[in-house]
Write a protein that binds this DNA or RNA. Structure first.
Length: 874
RNA sequence: GCGGGCGUGGUGGAACUGGUAGACACAAGGGACUUAAAAUCCCUCGGCCCUAGGCUGUACGGGUUCGAGUCCCGUCGCCCGCACCA
């Protein structure tokens, strides 16, 4: 058998069958052991799995298998994020039903995942488009509605007039719909919203508790929530606005600069602006122009600050003799603060640009350190740094922080008409989550519109509101809208004929609670609160950084909302989060360098190396191909490698091993053919070595025999590796674990080839090889099972307990100190581990090169760091 | 613009809280075996100096320290996030 080549295809299929037959990875909720929930972000069933999935699921599987071996009751489920636009696009392009398309893709991808040998509990699988799942999602929606967490309001949306649908900001490219290419309009639509803003403060504060999340993601969420403290100030109009308002309310974070006020700014969408436009054509045109420019383009940033004087004026709240003009300005957002500002051009760049254009006053009120108040002037750049307040009456001389407090205290005490002039306020950037989508392939929003009763929630017992199957995509827009009968229903309240809501939910809703559903996937409620609370939080969640904000923030909100309605009892769904890097590959295009020819795939070309120069050509025609930059694998650049092809050629273990080696998991990995072959050679090498060992040695009997030095050295290496690899896997340092296993194979191979004569050697070899196989098992489970069996074990390695390193073998009896002279390494000193500091010093000073360096003098300083290093300062 | 991160051989990357820089792998070169190829095995592999050995070296310039890839300041370069948030 030692000469047999390892046949991955045959071996992998065999072990997968065994695992499946024995239900090795099926998890039970009533298992008394400590729980561990490991989850990878579930895939969208786009058609086939890609290398990014392989990397993601390989990592999760290592964690799952490792924790299982460590004795945990591991939950490791898989499902499908199955609603969404690609299914509708496929329906339009290929005349397939979105449902058929989706379930066919799921079937394909499930088989692909299965040949990877993932230790998943497939009995818990579901797709978010399963009626059973979205029924429960509708039930949750109704509970949220009842709890006041859902509401309807008019909102501005990106509207594609050709496809007749709302587009997300990311789907608007250069002001045009990404599919239709039509100019996107801003439309007011009545939309459903989740009140995520109720939790702004909680979501922000709790970020501090997420200590097993990447700092980067935590920071991104903090910035996204965007807390700022400021003051809401009311300015009295000299003459009431046409809306009847007698005061203009603004929000500012810089009330300390109030004496630098030059003008007021209104958003084009501010009610006063809109009212004024009714009688002012010039203003109307301006507002229309502002709306045409999208909301999400960076071009906005470059856009010139523009505005129109409304003719309205307000009184300065601290000095009634000052009158300030009111402008409608294009740079003011309606949905932040109150949609109106006071402008202090001296200390805000946007305000300054505007003031310079319209020749408005610029009065500095913050003096930089060391500047002269008599001569300090503002040029083209606003002064936004720290300083001392001046030109500001009672605030003059104060720090910015003190002035903010002083002015807030003062204005809060002043009464204007029915209330205080100002109030301290905390503002957040986070907006409520608009979930209405004018699409078919999503979870129907379970409400009914009744002429008499208004918006009425569907009754629980009438759920699910099921998607109709008989739809067509001949016309653009939402097929639910024009379905002849589906909309028609009766009002749950009064029983009269009524219409169903035709909007479906944003697919991010589907993925905001699937992790909870996995804990009791067949429950006839959205969750089994006990199971959800017992299993959650997810101990290790793994996925791409692209979900740093939306999915992860929505899920955090959902968990709080589910807690509020009693579906579970915790706030944070994901205790540990890991964001893995992308899989990248070289790109290739037809023609020589710089020719910009069409992209070609790695499978279509061959690469040759001459004199260190790599050149590529087409496999079929020999045509020159230029080698381009390394990019994320994508269909458009054709630099993808199909996981199935790799697994067919080399086996799943090789693909998994390569994915985990070399690059740290959080960083991008470059997929190379050489790299895969290296992994494959390692698989063969391990198999050969273990075959020989199995042939020439006997399994260990229970007691450790007396050890020769060589045997003991091998044992020490094995135990040290075991300790290190355990630590690496605990911290998701897969690349380090891989390196250490390479090292151990090198050590073992050498020791074994030197012969087995030394006392205890056979035992040491067997022990090392057992550990080696166990350490490999989470990463290359099939090879590990095959080796385990070849070594005479009759148990499954997938069910074996993780070995513990013997602490006495982790430390040496002697320490080798590097000896430095003036910080430069000059030699080594081997001495007993127990040696005292004095003994180490004496031994160091006795070394001939130390003597020589000292030249008869005594050292200036002698530093001994126990167990570490010695430094002699001459 | 604001916020954050990174910069180590030909390449991917090791180096725990400051303590022997370059583990491990890939590529390359040389050799063994072979009729040949593949596979496998052995050797070399940051730069400089003639070797023993030494000098130098972690983007660049300074600093702290007995000792800096690691800490601090500045410069350059690359990457990511947010984007008129008052």
């Amino acid at each position: 058998m030692a000469t047999e080549r390892y046949n991955a295809r045959e071996v992998e299929a065999r072990w997968q069958k065994t695992w499946n037959d024995k239900d090795v990875f099926v998890t039970h909720n009533d298992d008394p052991r400590d729980k561990y929930y490991v989850l990878e972000m579930f895939p969208y069933p786009s058609g086939r799995i890609h290398m990014g999935h392989v990397r993601n699921y390989a990592m999760g599987d290592v964690v799952a298998r490792f924790k299982r071996a460590k004795g945990f009751n591991v939950l490791h489920p898989m499902g499908w994020d199955a609603f969404g636009m690609p299914a509708e696009n496929a329906a339009m392009q290929n005349k397939v039903h979105p449902k058929d398309w989706t379930y066919e893709n799921i079937a394909t991808m499930r088989e692909q995942l299965k040949i990877m040998g993932l230790s998943l509990d497939w009995s818990r699988e579901f797709a978010t488009c399963d009626v059973a799942y979205y029924k429960q999602q509708q039930a949750l929606f109704l509970k949220f509605l009842e709890a006041g967490l859902v509401y309807r309001k008019n909102a501005k949306v990106n509207w594609d007039p050709v496809d007749m649908t709302v587009l997300a900001n990311e789907q608007v490219i250069d002001g045009r719909g990404w599919r239709s290419g039509a100019l996107v309009e801003q439309r007011e639509l009545t939309q459903w919203f989740f009140k995520i803003s109720d939790y702004s403060e909680d979501l922000l504060e709790a970020i501090e508790t997420l200590d097993r999340w990447p700092d980067k993601v935590r920071l991104m969420q903090k910035n996204w929530i965007g807390r700022s403290e400021g003051l809401r100030v009311r300015f009295e109009f000299i003459e009431a606005a046409p809306t009847g308002d007698t005061t203009l309310e603004i929000f500012t974070t810089r009330p300390d600069t109030l004496y630098g006020a030059s003008f007021m700014g209104l958003s084009p969408d501010h009610p006063i602006s809109v009212k004024l436009a009714e009688t002012n054509p010039e203003l109307k045109d301006f507002i229309d122009e502002c709306r045409r420019v999208g909301t999400s383009e960076e071009a906005i940033e470059k856009a010139e600050k523009k505005g129109i004087d409304t003719g309205l004026k307000v009184k300065h709240p601290l000095d009634a003799s000052i009158e300030l003009p009111v402008y409608v300005a294009n740079f003011i957002l309606m949905d932040y603060g109150t949609g109106a500002i006071f402008a202090c051009p001296a200390h805000d760049q946007r305000d300054l640009d505007f003031a310079r254009k319209y020749d408005l006053s610029v009065k500095p009120v913050v003096l930089p350190k060391d500047a002269d108040p008599a001569t300090f002037e503002i040029g083209d750049e606003a002064y936004t740094d720290d300083g001392t307040i001046f030109n500001s009456d009672f605030m003059s001389g104060m720090t910015i922080a003190d002035a903010k407090n002083a002015v807030a205290d003062k204005l809060e005490a002043i009464k204007v008409e029915d209330g205080p002039q100002a109030e301290r306020q905390v503002n957040y950037r986070l907006r409520d989550w608009g979930i209405s989508r004018q699409r078919y392939w999503g979870c129907p929003i379970p409400v009914i519109h009744c002429d008499d009763c208004g918006v009425v929630p569907e009754k629980d017992e009438n759920l699910p509101v099921q998607l109709p199957d008989d739809i067509n995509f001949d016309k653009p827009g939402n097929p639910l809208d024009r379905h002849p009968t589906w909309r028609d229903t009766t009002c749950p309240n009064c029983g009269k004929p009524a219409k169903r809501e035709t909007d479906t939910m944003d697919t991010f809703v589907d993925s905001s609670w699937y992790f909870a559903r996995f804990t009791a996937p067949d429950c006839d409620q959205p969750t089994d609160p006990k199971a959800a609370t017992d299993w959650l939080p997810v101990d290790q969640y793994i996925g791409g950084i692209e979900h740093a904000i939306l999915h992860l923030l929505y899920s955090r909100f959902f968990t709080r909302a589910m807690q509020k309605v009693g579906a579970l009892d915790l706030k944070e769904p994901f205790k540990g989060l890991f964001t893995q890097g992308m899989v990248t590959h070289e790109t290739y295009r037809r023609g020589g360098d710089g020719s910009n020819g069409e992209w070609v795939s790695p499978a279509e070309i061959k690469i040759e190396e001459k004199n260190g120069q790599r050149t590529a050509s087409m496999l079929d025609s020999g045509e020159t191909v230029s080698i381009g930059s390394i990019e994320k694998m994508s269909k458009s650049k054709k630099n993808t490698v199909d996981p199935t092809d790799i697994i067919d050629t080399y086996g799943a273990d090789t693909a998994r091993w390569f994915m985990l080696s070399d690059s740290p998991p959080e960083r991008d990995v470059i997929w190379t053919e050489d790299g895969v072959q290296g992994a494959w050679r390692f698989v063969q090498r391990v198999w050969r070595l273990i075959g020989e060992i199995a042939e020439k040695t006997e399994p260990r009997n229970s007691s450790v025999p007396a050890m020769s030095q060589k045997a003991e050295d091998l044992r020490r290496a094995a135990h040290k590796t075991l300790a290190a690899v355990s630590n690496d896997l605990e911290g998701l340092g897969f690349n380090r674990a891989v390196a250490r296993l390479y090292e151990l194979v090198n050590t073992l191979s050498k020791a074994f080839n030197e012969g087995l004569e030394d006392q205890g050697k056979e035992y040491a070899v067997r022990e090392t090889v057992d550990y080696l196989v166990q350490m490999m098992a989470p990463m290359m489970p099939h090879l590990a099972e095959e080796c385990w069996s070849a070594l005479g074990h009759d148990s499954l390695i997938s069910e074996a307990a993780w070995p513990e390193a013997d602490p006495s073998l982790l430390t040496e009896d002697t320490v080798t100190y590097p000896i430095q002279i003036n910080g430069k390494r000059r030699g080594e000193l081997s001495i007993s581990k127990e040696a005292s500091k004095e003994e180490v010093e004496a031994a160091t000073l006795a070394l001939d090169y130390v003597q020589k360096a000292l030249d008869g003098k005594s050292p200036k300083k002698l530093i001994v760091v126990p167990q570490r290093i010695v430094n002699v300062v001459v």
